[in-house]
Structure formats: structure tokens, C-alpha cells
């Protein structure tokens, strides 16, 4: 099968499964509902369940989809940026920074709200952004900033932020339960405000990424080669880093740290449709959304009415699938 047919079939599969996932997300939950009640609510004939469908389950499904798409796009960008399929949205410390911010807000004990974001979300977003910016500035101080120096500085700064987070948790053991939300991710607090906040950010980032997708193809060959093929590497790199960081930080601020999605989704999509970023960015976003809709669904129904953190599900189901993809027999060329 040629690559064009593969892409078409894969797109169809993604759309069908996403619609199916959305339908299941609306139907399943602690309050048992039937499809007929769901359709009656959609058609406006039944207001009894419309509150549950449209104000609890639908925003939750939309937010899961957007966060999944954002994390996968951020991962796809950073994997190309670092020329490393093991890169993920949190590689530069975005997640450690966010955890620090969230735990710090629990320690500080004050409460503010902005654009529908809680204190935790706001601080998580800010510290995540600040940490990645500091990482970038430190590595830029070297005469020749290399992706390796950026990567290693990110890992070191992430470790430092994690240590501070652990210290704060150690001081406030009672905050541990709340902190788990950030450490393992959840959509239990999803609402429309968060969706409307993330949606324009994602659309803008996706458009810019798509505009520069050819440059990412060139960057993934290495900076020297990219320059000789006409890419203004310094500018393009800065834009991509900003996009990936904003996507990761926004995602973390509304849903906590959901590991693995930003790593495996772009990688798996690349194995299916190839590494051309003009397609990879779009398909990874679609697949990331799908992946988190189903992960959230599973997190809600496995121990219903209790909920599993969604990060546990992404790792538990994503890892075996990823191992299968990596080890599936290759067809001879």
C-alpha cells in the first residue's frame, strides 16, 4: 500500500474512532444513561440529562481531546526539534515546573482566579513557562547553543524543580492528595471555560506549526543541512520551541501532567504515515486527541464511580501498544 492510501485510511480510522469515542464519553459516567436519553437530550427534548451531557461530559471530552492534541503536537515538534524520537513535551522541564507551581500554590494558601483558571492552574502555567525560559536562556549563554546543551540543561532544571516539589510536599503532607492531581493528570475538573481557553491557543499553535512544517523536515536533517537547503534555522527553532512550550504548559495547567501521550502518539503516527511533518503534525494532533478521549474514558469506567488518574491509564495502555509498534515485524521493502 502506498503512503497516500495509508494516510487516507488512517485519517478515516481516526475520524470514525474519534466520533465513537465522543459518543461513549457522553454516554458513560457515574449516572447511567442510555443512547435514547442521549439523543433526546441532543435534540432538546429531554432537559433532565442535558445538564450532565452538555455541562459535564461534553466539555470533559472536548478538553481531553484538546489536551491530547496539544501534547501530541508538542511532542511531534520536540522530536523533530531534537532529532530524537524519545523527546516529549516535558523534556525541557515543563512538567516539573508545573508541578512546582501547583504544589507551591497549595503551600501558599491564597486563591485567585483568572480566565477560568484556578490558582493552581495559573501558578502551574507560569512556573512551567518560567522554567523552560530559564533553561533556554542558560543554554543560550554558551557561545554555540546546541540542542544537546538545551536538552541537558532542561533535564538538570527539571530535576531541581522536582526536588523543590518533593521538599514542599514533605513540608505539607496533607496537600499530597491534591498534588496527585498534578502529578498524574485528571479531567475531573473540566469545564467549558478551560476548553475556550485552550482551543484558540491550540488552533493558533497548530496553524503556525503547519506553516513551518517544511522547515521542520529540514531541521530534522540537522542544522547544517537545513541551512544549506534554505532554512533560517535560528528563527525557526525559536518559534518551534515557543510553540511546544506553550502547548505543554497550557495542557498541564488545565489537566495536570499526563505522561506518555506526547511521547508515544507522534512516534506511533510516524511509524504509520512516515516522518513528513506536513502530515505528521496534523495526524499526531488528531491521534493525540483520540488517545486521550479513550484514556479518559477508561479512567472513568475501570473503577467507577471512583476515577483513576488519566496519566496512569495513558502509561498502562500506551506502553504495551508502543512496545508492540516498535517490535512489529517489518515488511521487506
Amino acid at each position: 500500500m502506498n503512503i497516500k492510501s495509508k494516510r487516507k485510511i488512517f485519517l478515516l480510522v481516526l475520524i470514525i474512532f474519534t466520533l465513537f469515542g465522543c459518543l461513549l464519553s457522553l454516554k458513560l459516567g457515574p449516572v447511567k444513561t442510555s443512547y435514547s436519553e442521549l439523543f433526546r437530550a441532543i435534540s432538546g427534548k429531554d432537559s433532565q440529562f442535558s445538564q450532565i451531557f452538555f455541562h459535564l461530559r461534553l466539555p470533559r471530552a472536548c478538553l481531553a481531546y484538546l489536551v491530547g492534541a496539544s501534547l501530541a503536537l508538542s511532542g511531534a515538534i520536540l522530536q523533530g526539534y531534537f532529532r530524537n524520537p524519545l523527546a516529549d513535551p516535558f523534556i525541557l522541564g515543563a512538567s516539573s515546573g508545573a508541578s512546582l507551581g501547583a504544589v507551591l500554590s497549595l503551600n501558599l494558601g491564597f486563591s485567585i482566579s483568572l480566565f477560568g483558571l484556578s490558582t493552581q492552574s495559573l501558578l502551574a502555567f507560569l512556573t512551567s513557562l518560567i522554567l523552560v525560559s530559564v533553561v533556554y536562556l542558560i543554554s543560550e549563554r554558551r557561545r554555540f547553543q546546541t540542542t544537546e546543551s538545551l536538552l541537558l540543561t532542561g533535564i538538570a532544571a527539571g530535576a531541581l524543580a522536582s526536588a523543590l516539589t518533593s521538599f514542599l510536599l514533605f513540608r505539607r503532607a496533607d496537600a499530597y492528595e491534591q498534588a496527585v492531581f498534578w502529578l498524574l493528570g485528571s479531567f475531573s475538573l473540566a469545564d467549558w471555560k478551560q476548553v475556550w481557553l485552550l482551543l484558540p491557543c491550540f488552533i493558533l499553535a497548530a496553524l503556525v506549526a503547519q506553516y513551518l512544517a517544511k522547515d521542520m523536515n529540514l531541521l530534522s536533517l540537522g542544522d547544517e543541512t537545513a541551512r544549506t537547503l534554505g532554512c533560517s534555522t535560528k528563527t525557526v527553532r525559536k518559534v518551534f520551541l515557543l510553540l511546544a512550550t506553550l502547548l505543554a504548559s497550557f495542557s498541564v495547567s488545565v489537566a495536570g501532567i499526563i505522561g506518555f501521550a506526547g511521547l508515544i502518539v507522534p512516534h506511533a503516527v510516524r511509524l504509520i504515515i512516515g516522518p513528513d511533518h506536513r502530515y505528521l503534525f496534523i495526524y499526531a494532533s488528531l491521534a493525540g486527541g483520540l488517545f486521550l478521549i479513550f484514556s479518559d474514558l477508561i479512567s472513568r469506567i475501570v473503577f467507577s464511580p471512583a476515577e483513576l488518574p488519566v496519566g496512569v491509564v495513558t502509561a498502562a495502555f500506551g506502553a504495551p501498544f508502543f512496545i508492540y509498534l516498535l517490535n512489529r515485524p517489518k515488511r521487506s521493502a
Binding site: N84, K214, N217, G222, L229, C231, R270, P275, D276
Partner: peptide, 20 residues
């Protein structure tokens, strides 16, 4: 030296010369 990290095909690689 050229060590490709991602699995671009020969045609995709040559076509990148036309991007600009």
C-alpha cells in the same frame, strides 16, 4: 557525514531541495 534520524524516503529527501 549524514546520519538520518527519521525514515524519509529517497524521493522525499531529494524533494526537500526544492522547498525554498
Amino acid at each position: 557525514v549524514f546520519e538520518p534520524v527519521f525514515d524519509f524516503t529517497v524521493e522525499e529527501t531529494v524533494a526537500m531541495a526544492r522547498y525554498h
